[in-house]
Design a protein around this nucleic acid. Structure first.
Lengths: 137, 137
DNA sequence: CCTTGCCTTCAAGTGCACATTAAGGTCTAT
DNA sequence: ATAGACCTTAATGTGCACTTGAAGGCAAGG
């Protein structure tokens, strides 16, 4: 598969795929005799992984750091798991923040004020929701 | 309250507060006799709103667009609601994408492979989850 | 009187994550 | 053999969201 097909398959631009390779977010890609990239499903899966982590807000720098750990042959399973768990925590917090903002907007929509300022009433409601969430943990 | 105190209260840098004012994400701030910004709780709430929407991934440009609508005195409640609802949809999609990535990472942690590539098995699992989610809608 | 510490505006700089351009190579079709 | 569509690398440009720097004002303390 050439880079254009890979781009269409993943939704990631050709330039971005080359960039990911250069930044070691994906493994070095095999080349044809004339030097063109020949992309297989293993690379596609790695690109997909990068896309998903990027969408989850992980920076290129952090992504490279722990992909390098994975690609190192030493047994760092523990460390790998720790890193994944760390990222998981970041993502869960992000999701919860997002949920708070969603709740906030829903509240706005249900109690539509003349102005969009966060009112004292809303702040109290947000605090209430926060307390409730904590209680549920 | 001066800008430094406001910065400490909101966690937004002084420069960013000035930037938000310039970009009309928050109202024009009152000044003291010598021209220093005098920030009250109304502004603090607006800054907090901006922070929350920014954290939810809304761009400065889009944020300004609809804050201008709110600040306009005409009755555009319908339009305002439409915009909030649109942003709500964006945020919910983002949250769901994040949840997918979280599920993905959890799956990785539970079926820890030698390599972090997304396996065929995982792809099938992701598809299964996707189908399930669709079915629940 | 001068340093410290806050403030002001305006302009320019920064970091990230690519996108774009330049200059050239290869393959296929007409 | 000439165009068109793909590819390559390397360098440069871009957009966003601020950050930093320059140059200066105001008020308190030593």
């Amino acid at each position: 598969m050439n880079i254009k097909e890979a781009s269409e398959k993943t939704g990631v631009s050709s330039a971005a795929i080359r960039y990911y390779e250069k930044e070691s977010l994906i493994p070095e890609i095999d080349r044809t005799e004339v030097g063109n990239r020949d992309i297989d499903d293993r690379i596609i899966r790695r690109i997909t992984f990068v896309t998903q982590m990027r969408a989850a807000g992980m920076s290129i720098e952090n992504l490279r750091r722990y992909i390098q750990l994975f690609d190192a042959q030493e047994d760092n399973t523990k460390e790998q798991k720790a890193i994944l768990q760390e990222q998981l925590a970041v993502m869960e917090e992000k999701r919860d923040d997002l949920q708070s903002a969603i709740d906030h907007l829903n509240y706005k929509l249900n109690h539509f004020y003349d102005h969009m300022e966060t009112t004292e009433e809303e702040l109290r409601e947000l605090e209430r929701q926060h307390a409730e969430k904590k209680a549920n943990q």
